[in-house]
């Protein structure tokens, strides 16, 4: 057990030594990996912020209930009582057909249309503010209202929120695809870096194998190296994103000031950041592992 721990410590030290042996080349590699990772990371941060915004700004969803044209004042009264006794609603208001017509007339551009009408084609309506609930809950509520007597139809007025939600979902997929593509790039970069290292250390590998080194012993420093490169690239990506946010928030602050709303993009939480770093390290390790497997088998006896 102690031998195992010391073997890993030695591999780690040796990986660090290799990292500092060619600082410029490794720095360039880390920068490339950092930029490649910063792209999906940055998009993810913006997306996460947008999602937060959508949640904050989205008004309480409303459902409009349109009555049939021949509904009487008594029908309206019945429905009003029914809505009052219905639990789980944040509130509702009645919009009589005359008022709806006035609203239509007052809207620019539509006054002429309204004037041309012989009668009032608009129905009486209730506008219900639903309590908390997702799209599915709203839909059941709408269906319930639509089935009530004397109701012609019911509409959910928060379609825009749903659309935004879908749009963000599409964005999430785009980020995922971008991340997958650039993760592949990271694996390719470490694969090639390790390949070059194996080439420059061919003598050492050959001698070590001849005098009884196991494949694990030979691989370990390379794997640690891949992991280190990945972590360093991840940290670079995190810092780049932080820097971009700093610059962006400056500009956004001016814009937000004009509208009188506080707008500010926040960076990843520490748990997300940690995950991103571990992910980068894992990719580096994986790239190194592929490379080592591919290039070490050449030394086996034939």
């Amino acid at each position: 057990m102690r031998a195992w721990a010391s073997a890993h410590r030695r591999a780690c030290v040796s990986a660090f030594a290799r990292l500092t042996a060619t600082p410029l080349a490794n720095l360039l590699n880390i920068t490339v990996i950092g930029i490649a990772l910063a792209l999906p990371l940055g998009f993810y941060v913006v997306l996460a912020n947008l999602q937060g915004l959508a949640r904050d700004f989205s008004p309480q969803p409303e459902i409009s209930i349109f009555l049939v044209a021949e509904a009487t004042a008594a029908d309206v009264r019945v429905l009003e009582l029914r809505l009052k006794s219905r639990a789980g609603l944040a509130g509702f208001r009645f919009v009589p057909r005359a008022q709806a017509l006035e609203q239509l007339k007052s809207r620019s551009g539509l006054a002429d249309v309204a004037a041309g009408l012989s009668g009032n084609p608009l129905p009486d309506a209730f506008v219900v503010t639903a309590g908390a609930g997702d799209a599915a809950a709203l839909e059941t509520l709408r269906a319930e209202f639509a089935a009530w007597p004397k109701v012609a139809e019911a509409h959910v007025d928060s379609d825009w929120a749903r659309r935004l939600d879908r749009l963000l979902a599409v964005g999430r997929y785009a980020v995922l695809m971008l991340a997958a593509a650039l993760a592949l790039a990271l694996v390719a970069i470490t694969f090639n870096t390790i390949r070059l290292q194996i080439l420059t250390q061919r003598d050492e590998i050959e001698v070590a194998k001849l005098i009884g080194a196991t494949d694990g012993w030979i691989q370990r420093p390379f794997l640690y190296f891949g992991g280190l490169i990945g972590i360093a690239g991840g940290i670079t990506a995190w810092l780049l994103t932080a820097l971009a946010l700093l610059v962006f928030n400056n500009q956004l602050g001016t814009l937000a000031g004009l509208y009188g709303v506080p707008l500010k993009l926040t960076h990843l939480f520490w748990a997300d950041s940690l995950f991103a770093l571990l992910f980068a390290a894992g990719l580096g390790w994986f790239g190194a592992w592929l490379s080592v497997r591919r290039h070490l088998s050449a030394h086996n006896p034939s």
């Binding site: 001849l210 005098i211 009884g212």
Partner: peptide, 19 residues
């Protein structure tokens, strides 16, 4: 293949080109 390293540890190898 994985047994070879342990077999080789029984030997001390002296190479013509030293390695």
């Amino acid at each position: 293949a994985r047994g070879i390293p342990f077999l080789r540890r029984n030997f001390g190898l002296v190479f013509q080109d030293h390695k």
